[in-house]
Write a protein that binds this DNA or RNA. Structure first.
Length: 867
RNA sequence: GCCGAAGUGGUGGAAUUGGUAGACACGCUAGACUUAGGAUCUAGUACCGCGAGGUGUGGAGGUUCAAGUCCUCUCUUCGGUACCA
């Protein structure tokens, strides 16, 4: 008899069967409860890697489980197909981004099909297809009309030598990754979505997402970053002009001894004019424009600034204070201007020391008093007000309110709420993206493309410029346009494309009616399927993608297109699959197969034999080349063992350093079940499974096995349903199988035989979401009709979960000293007395009388004796 | 820098509410079967110790009859940081 499981014949057989019977095809069905499960769609980078396998296996197991539970399940797949890697690959391999992308999609689709994932492939979408991005362009126009999209000037990374805009990833230590030229900041007109209009709503609803992990909602809240504070108005000395600052510490205003403006602040130039500091200020602004202007970026540079030559009036003290411009102030935060309180803020303190500016203590700590002449760092804590006029002696918390009220009366301040969140810049000066559907007319200005002209198709016959620049502005037939309003023929089409996060912010709605031609989606389909019940994807998307998606649903809600605001009811953030990187001094990052191991444990580059440097263990990504292609595993062990192994390695939310050690164990387990099943099928033909209560079994081994099986069903169901802890679900089945291996299958015990048949059948059902091909095959060999997919998920019997005996653990002073077993229904007194009478316990008591005896009867039965 | 996580045997990991630390596997050791084994089965395997026993969940304190789990401080690693997706 055939003793080994042969995936190479079994797996294609069942994939064909599922396909032929269209078992994964779904349609709206009002008679069934719907369940929409979605895994984050992949970027088609070439081949799927182990991280994808992990993500999609998790989803597939839940989908197959939910189907068996009777839900009508939507489980689609598609491609996040626009993006920078396609452009880089096109340049490197002298191909076209479209060709590269479509080839990759074909290859990856084939791999996913080989894994046996239960997708409804009829719903597949690719975001680079005009039928998809047409609706994104349509939505852009609606947003533009409602004022939800607008244009403003902002900075991009610019390489003068390559004459291209660079993504942050393309900047390596301030240098262009292609030519090593120092990167500059360049100001461009760009499109923005007004996500800040929804800051409050997005924030408030973070607490109304019980199906999301706390860590994600916490990160989103912190990202939105609400701060309650005051706007204070400082009059420019000798002028009617005012400078408005935002501060969370209005209580310290008496200590504001100077002011700092962001170098981009519009008043920097006007203030310095005619003061003699004009040139110095201009030079400084020029210098800072070469620095990275982001919250992270500014940390890289030494904090510095220059005096503008102008002063303003502190509204509290009435004194003149100097106005500086400084590189650590960002135009995008607050008002782009800060009042500097060196005694109460470390950055201001450092700045004051550096430029020898006045320091005044206004909040005095209660315990150790501080003095402006001797203090070595700022004091940011709470305390009592000093040097603050009528507010002296007050605690600073009360003073915050009072000072703001006082300034408000003088017309110099008001309470306000500020957010860290900034509007979403969506313009990209790239080729491989969805074109922004507007036309710039010399007379009419910005004019949206008429809806009847959509989609504005991306020309697919254009080639990228050598250095990575977009060819769109140079393509006359694309860039030249006629103004839709006035008909002028020398209008210009916008040649920027949209951020790829725009596509991924609504794709899950498109899956509900992927071929709909009348709009973004069919409202009926949305009514049935949306929102997504369970979303699964990498934790690295905790903020951006997930926040943008939440924002998009609010936009559609405001436009009256949907009646919900939250796209994903439950979220599972999967941990990352990590691996060390390998770099060759000559060839840069290497794929694992491009390095060969030497005898001494080091690696050499296969291209140049140079020594390979092993880098840190980080998230798998194609750009770092530390990816593992699952094909080798797939060929050696098949899809089911690969699926089992990826789940058994760790719980889904945990990061995982990739290693194939242990895959043999998964393979061994699959074959153990295979042999056991074939053996039982042969020996127990015609025997029906036992399904009554455990108490009806007279045979002790049968009863014990039956209880173990019932416990296993409960454990597996709970692990899949409540926590997605598939690793422990698998362990539970392994335990049951191990018990069955200790049995003599030649037994005469008829009850035991019936229980064994029960076990086998349930093992197949419990494993079927994880090992679908394998279980289909054995289910068929067991003589059962139809697909396991169409079976009901096993229900455990509540009356058959408890064993008759329990283990009692005895501790002395919290240390384990003895164990014994007792009837499950023993009295507490009996357990206590038995424990005290125990020989080992007596020895540890050493004749002393116990001070206290604690008996716990919960999950464990435990006695702790305190001496 | 800021925000969020993670840290348990040689390895991956287990341990609902504080209650036997190390389930289930990998690896290793020994044995059985076999012409053979990278198949299979059985037993052992946290560390120190001959033993009684002691020590152990990144580190230092604390709360408790009892701490991997709760509290305070701290170290290391990973993710995100708005143009990688």
């Amino acid at each position: 008899m055939e003793q080994r499981y042969h995936p190479e014949s079994v797996e294609p057989k069942w994939q064909e069967y599922w396909n032929k019977n269209q078992l994964f095809k779904v349609q709206e069905d009002s008679s069934k409860e719907k369940y929409y499960l979605l895994e984050m769609f992949p970027y088609p980078s070439g081949k799927i890697h182990i991280g994808h396998v992990r993500n999609y296996t998790i989803g597939d197991v839940v989908v197959r489980y939910k189907r068996m539970k009777g839900y009508n399940v939507l489980h689609p797949m598609g491609w996040d197909a626009f993006g920078m890697p396609a452009e880089n690959a096109a340049i490197d391999n002298n191909t076209h981004p479209a060709a590269w992308t479509y080839d990759n999609i074909s290859a990856m689709r084939a791999q996913l099909k080989k894994m046996g994932f239960s997708y409804d492939w009829d719903r597949e979408i690719a975001t680079c297809r005009p039928e998809y991005y047409k609706w994104e362009q349509w939505l852009f126009i609606q947003m533009l009309k409602k004022g939800m999209a607008y244009r403003k000037e902002s900075y991009v990374n610019w390489c003068e030598k390559c004459q291209t805009v660079l993504a942050n990833e393309q900047v390596e230590q301030d240098k262009c990754w292609r030519c090593s030229q120092t990167v500059q900041q360049k100001k461009l007109w760009q499109w923005f979505f007004k996500i800040t209009d929804y800051a409050q709503d997005l924030l408030v609803h973070c607490d109304k997402l019980p199906g999301w992990p706390d860590k994600v909602t916490v990160m989103q809240k912190n990202w939105i970053g609400q701060s309650v504070g005051s706007e204070l108005t400082f009059q420019v000395d000798g002028s009617d002009e005012n400078i408005v600052v935002f501060t969370t510490r209005p209580d310290t205003v008496f200590g504001a001894t100077f002011m700092c403006l962001a170098p981009e602040h519009p008043m920097v130039e006007t203030l310095s004019k005619g003061t003699g500091n004009e040139e110095e200020v201009a030079a400084f602004v020029q210098k800072v424009s070469r620095q990275e202007r982001s919250a992270e970026g500014i940390e890289k540079y030494e904090k510095e600034g220059v005096f503008t030559g102008a002063c303003c009036i502190n509204p509290a003290t009435g004194e003149k204070i100097p106005v500086y411009t400084a590189n650590f102030v960002l135009m995008e935060y607050g008002t782009g201007a800060i009042m500097s309180v060196p005694a109460g803020d470390q950055r201001d303190f450092d700045f004051a020391k550096k430029y020898d500016l006045n320091i005044r203590v206004v909040v005095q700590p209660e315990d150790v008093p501080i003095d402006s002449d001797t203090m070595s760092e700022a004091y940011t804590g709470e305390g009592v007000m000093v040097n603050s006029g009528e507010f002296n002696g007050m605690d600073n918390k009360t003073a915050m309110e009072k000072i703001t009220d006082w300034l408000e009366e003088k017309g110099r301040g008001k309470k306000t709420i500020s957010y860290r969140l900034r509007d979403w810049g969506i313009s990209r000066q790239r080729y491989w993206g969805a074109p922004i559907p507007v036309i710039h007319c010399p007379d009419c200005g910005v004019v949206p493309v008429p809806e009847s002209d959509l989609p504005i198709k991306l020309p697919e016959d254009a080639n990228l410029l050598e250095k990575g620049g977009s060819p769109l502005p140079k393509l006359d037939y694309f860039a030249k346009a006629t103004c839709p309003t006035c008909g002028r023929e020398d209008a210009q089409r916008d040649t920027d494309t949209m951020d790829t996060f725009v596509e991924s912010s609504w794709y899950y709605l498109r899956y509900c009616s992927p071929r709909f031609t009348e709009g973004m989606f069919d409202p009926e389909a949305i009514k049935y399927w949306a929102p997504v019940d369970q979303y699964i994807g990498g934790v690295e998307h905790a903020v951006l993608h997930l926040l943008y998606s939440r924002y998009f649903m609010r936009v559609l809600n405001t436009l009256g297109m949907i009646d919900f605001k939250e796209p994903f009811t439950r979220l599972l953030t999967q941990g990352m699959v990590c691996k060390e990187t390998m770099t060759c001094p000559e060839h840069g990052y290497l794929f694992p197969e491009e390095a060969v191991k030497n005898e001494d444990g080091t690696f050499s580059c296969t291209k140049c034999s140079g020594e390979v440097e092993i880098g840190r263990v980080i998230k798998m990504s194609k750009s770092k080349k530390n990816v593992v292609d699952p094909n080798e595993l797939l060929e050696k062990y098949g899809a089911d063992v690969t699926r089992l192994f990826s789940l058994f390695a760790a719980p889904p939310e945990r990061d995982l350093e990739w290693s194939e050690d242990g895959v043999e164990g998964s393979n061994r387990f699959v074959n153990r079940v295979w042999r056991l099943a074939l053996d039982c099928i042969e020996k127990y033909k015609g025997i029906d499974p036992y399904t009554e209560a455990a108490s009806g079994l007279k045979s002790k081994p049968a009863k014990e096995l039956y209880i173990k099986a019932q416990q296993t069903i409960k454990k597996v169901t709970d692990d899949i349903d409540k926590s997605f802890h598939f690793n422990t679900a698998i362990s539970a089945v392994m335990e049951l199988v191990n018990v069955m291996y200790t049995l003599d299958l030649e037994t005469d015990d008829n009850e035991l035989k019936q229980v064994i048949v029960f076990c086998l059948e349930n093992i197949l059902l419990l494993l079927s979401p994880i090992l679908p091909h394998f279980c289909e095959e054995l289910f068929e060999r067991l003589g059962r009709e139809g697909s396991v997919l169409e079976q009901s998920w096993p229900e455990y019997r509540e009356d058959s979960l408890k064993t008759d005996e329990v283990l009692v653990v005895v501790q002395v002073n919290g240390k384990l000293r003895a164990k014994f077993s007792a009837a499950a229904d023993s009295d507490e007194d009996v357990i206590r007395d038995t424990a005290l009478a125990d020989e080992k316990i007596q020895k540890h008591l050493g004749g002393k009388t116990p001070k206290k005896v604690i008996v716990i009867r919960k999950k464990q039965t435990l006695v702790n004796i305190v001496v």
